[in-house]
Each structure stands twice: as structure tokens, then as C-alpha cells.
Computed example of a mutant assay.
Amino acid sequence: MRATVRLGRIGGIPIGLHWSVFVAVLLIGSVVAVNLPGVAPGLGFGAYLLWGCAGAAAFLLSLLAHELAHALVARRTGTEVRAITLWLLGGVSELGGQPKRPAAEAGIAFAGPLTSAVLGAAFAAGAVVAEAAGGPDLLTAVLAWLAVMNVVLAVFNLLPGTPLDGGRVVHALLWGLWGDRDRASRAAGSAGQVLGLILAGIGLFQALDGRWDGLWLVLVGWFVASAAAGESARALMGSRVAGVQVGEIMTRRPVTVPAWLSVQQLVSALTAPDAPRHRVFPVVGATGELVGVVSQGDLARVPAADRPTTPLRTVTRAVPGEWVLTADSPLDPLLDRPLTHGRDLAVVVEDGAVIGVVGPDDLARTVERRGLLTDDRAKR
């Protein structure tokens, strides 16, 4: 998930907000504000909304702490953490790979709920102190709400199905028991899909009974089921391409583009009758070294009047390190961070020069062909 607003770094980890966070603050703040008059009557709705949004913002910071706990434990176990992004339904820690051992995965998974439980206890203590000290009733109410929400967050995340933390723990246990990561992923993914459907069903029943907050549970259930299905699909792909090297599926001697061209020169070449039919191209320097990649979409975003004077280098995108491969590299990095059609390429290099590329279609074709040669049902 791409961040809309970058907040900076914590411990070297980039932190960002998706635009949906602002919707979440207003929604949660409004829900809290509606219930505050029963605690401290006689104030205007603006005051209740202000306290509600403050509570919602504090809860988002609690979510950030939850994700930071995952990220910091992941780094201690040797797993790269690329970024943390907060969005409408919580937070996402983008890892640069998968944990190497079941124990590491279980530790990473437990860190988030444990942090939320500790925060819940801290907010509860704060509410008790605020009430004993005669503090504002609204402050006590918001602190108590934050305590409850953090405990709920901890318990909810321990439910046994991916992508929830409890599902990661189940995956780690099954992985350690069976010794097969992909089989464990399929099992935890199936549990996540069932869990998501149950949550969505409960939410739908609540909505039909007049409790419109059940629609939120429907949304959460849909997300859990969808994410679990995606992880199951990834596990299936992993089992199908196990042992396959990049050199076996790459397109050799790909069409490359010199970095010293202008955008107009490349546009003219791509619109000629004999133009290559590709959509994304590696950009190379004078000695054939990789500079980056450029897509037709990148070129189209340059205004026509500026294309003759715009160097191609200015629209060339760097290739992430996990997509710069050698012919004997495994395909796993391409499953952990999938390529986007019409935008991304994995580039294969040898002695610094580009010798091949792998696109999304190359990977999909390999998965399909390997599927024809194996019986995946036997692995379930």
C-alpha cells in the first residue's frame, strides 16, 4: 500500500499515512463524539467532536505503536522492514522478505498484540488516575475508551487466521510442525478466509437488525477474507515455482533504451510501424549498465511540448534491489513483491550488464505451466 503523506522515519523505518486515515479519524471521532454527551452533558457538539477526534488520533498512534513493535522485532530477527503505512483499517508493515524461522515469525506476530495490551493497561491506569485527581470527565472517558479499544485490538488480532497476527502464529506453529512453509500458508490462509466470512456474516446480521455499525464489521471481514485468499494464492505460486531459477524464464537479449535519448526520441521510436510491442523497457548507460526502467505510461505523463527537451533520465525509475537479479537467482523475491503490469520489470544482470528481463506475464506463464505438471490438491 502506497503512503499518501510521508511523516518521516522512526528508527530508520519510513512512516506514512494513506489518505483513508483522515476518513478514519473523522468516522471514529464522530462515533466517539456521539457517545460523549452521556458522560459530560451540557457542551456543544463541537467540543465533543474535538475530543472524539483527539481520541481517534491517539488510537491511530496506538496502531502505529502496534506496527512498530512488529517492525522492530522483525529487524532484530534479520527481516528487512521497508515501511509502515497507516490506513483506514489499521496499519501495514511492509517487510522485505519472510522470516527465516518459525520462531522468528511467531515472535514478530506476538509483538503487536502484546504492545496493544500494554497500551490498554496504560490507558486504563491513566483513566483511573484522571478520575481520582478530579480531571475532566471527557478526558477520563476518552482514556477509558482508548483502553478498551487497545485491548479489543490485541484480542482481535490474535484471532487464528491470516492476515491477522493470530494467523501468523498459527502459520508459524504449522510450519514448525510440518516443516513446509507453503503448506502452512495454505492452511492459515484457508482459516483466514473462513474467519473473514464469519466476521462479515456477523456484521451483516447486525446491520439487518438495525445496528449500522455492523457494516464496519462487514468491511473488516471482507478485507480479512480477501487478504487471506491472496496469501493462499501466493503460497500456491511459491510451491509451483520452487526450485525455478530466473534464467529459466527470463526474456533474453531484451530491448533496451539508451539513457541519453530525449523523451521525444523514444516516443518516436515507440510509435513507428516497426516499434517493439513491449510496454516497459530497461534504460542503460553508455557501457550497458542498468540505469532504471521506463514505461509508456511514464512517457505519456510528459507534456508533448516538453518531450523534445526532456532527458529520458528524468522520467526513468530506479529498479528496487530485489528486482535486480542474476540468472541463478530464485524467483521468490518476485512473489514477495509482485510486479505491476505495464509498469514494472525485474532486470537480470551479469557483470553489470543487462542480459534479460522478467515481467509479470513471464511469472504468470511459469506458474500456469508448472500447474499443468503438478497436482496441487495432493499438497493440501
Rank of each mutant, 00 (worst) to 15 (best):
L36C: 08
G352T: 00
L173V: 13
L139V: 13
A207V: 11
L72K: 15
G44S: 04
D328N: 13
A364W: 06
T314C: 02
G11E: 04
V128G: 07
L49S: 08
H70P: 03
H341P: 15
A141P: 06
V31P: 00
A227P: 09
V280F: 06
A141H: 01
G166D: 03
L88D: 08
V367L: 11
F281G: 00
A259R: 11
G46C: 06
S232Y: 09
V291K: 05
V315D: 01
L61I: 09
A259P: 00
L68G: 03
R183P: 07
I108F: 07
G230I: 06
G29A: 11
A141I: 05
D209P: 00
R279H: 13
P163T: 02
R240M: 12
L153P: 10
D351I: 00
P41T: 02
G112E: 02
L95Y: 04
D180C: 01
V263P: 01
D213K: 00
W212D: 05
L86C: 01
E80V: 14
P273F: 06
D209A: 14
T115V: 13
P338W: 08
A300R: 14
V302Y: 04
M250P: 03
E105N: 08
A227Y: 07
L299D: 00
A56V: 11
D336A: 03
A103W: 15
V34T: 12
G196E: 10
R301N: 03
G285N: 00
E67K: 11
R377W: 10
D306T: 02
I249T: 03
V348I: 02
